[in-house]
Amino acid sequence: MTTDAKPTQTARSRLEPEAMPRRDFLGLAAWWSAAAALLFGFLGAMRLPKAAVLPSPSKKFKVTLPASVATGQPYVPAGRSVAIYKDGANVYAISTVCTHLGCIVKATDSGFDCPCHGSKFAKDGSVLKGPAPKGLPWVELKHLGGDIFLVDEGKAVAAGTTVIA
């Protein structure tokens, strides 16, 4: 250590500046706090576009299953994206929204075909072909008595879940 050779009270020269002059430190702190304040302000403002209440129409609806629907024949209520099936006394519903990018799949005799990028699904909704990352979800169905059912498109249930009509 050479402290005694260089007395500490020597005036600092331009050639030997402080590592971080106090003024610079305060200046930087001011800039960073301004930036941080703006960032938080921005993030706070971004709460506004993130909707809390979604305007989507209700996904629950009542449906009367026509008696004419045969076993294995899809019944798609108008304007809804579920296919309802009867299998003897068992009734179940499979969503027809493609798990790839949200097109509406078409129920065919062999399962479901998506018109958008060619995904194909088996009768139970599992993926056979194409880019869809997972099978079509089965959705909740409640028997309200008679031929009337309550479907909740928004609520997935385990594949294979049926209700007895």
């Binding site: 971004m46 576009p49 993130k50 909707a51 979604l54 305007p55 989507s56 949200g102």
Partner: peptide
């Protein structure tokens, strides 16, 4: 999900 929600303001393409 967040990206889609901010983009659409909803779960599907609608008035929002």
């Amino acid at each position: 999900g967040l990206q889609k929600l901010i983009l659409l303001g909803s779960e599907e393409v609608g008035e929002e």
